[in-house]
Amino acid sequence: MATGTIKVRAKATGGVTEVKALMTHPMETGLRKDKKTGELVPAHFIQEVTCTWKDQTVMAAHWGGTISTNPYLAFKFSGAQPGDEITLKWSDNKGDSDSETAAIS
């Protein structure tokens, strides 16, 4: 399991929480050729990203390899208070995963 690949911040304004996250991941589509060897670089990308708040899944994303390298993600949900914790988790097509928890400010 990977560690330290997620930076996540969440901010509540007017009852709506905006979550912003940056992940470190190569996001290989499987279609790119290695310039030196001419071989295809095998696909390696994040397939699932989920965000939970108080045992509730507020957002669950399926991604393909066409999300940019080192993915950025932002989304919003309502109902949370400053101080609540959210957890963001990703898993990729090679079975690797990471998660990070942040308090809403």
Binding site: V58, A61, T66, I67, S68, P71, F77, S78
Partner: peptide, 26 residues
Amino acid sequence: GNATPLVAAFDMGENAVGFVSTRIKM
């Protein structure tokens, strides 16, 4: 225009607000 057009699908929970932002390859 991509070889595989679907980039991402976000399933939103009950509390979701209609907003997603990301960076994609084209």
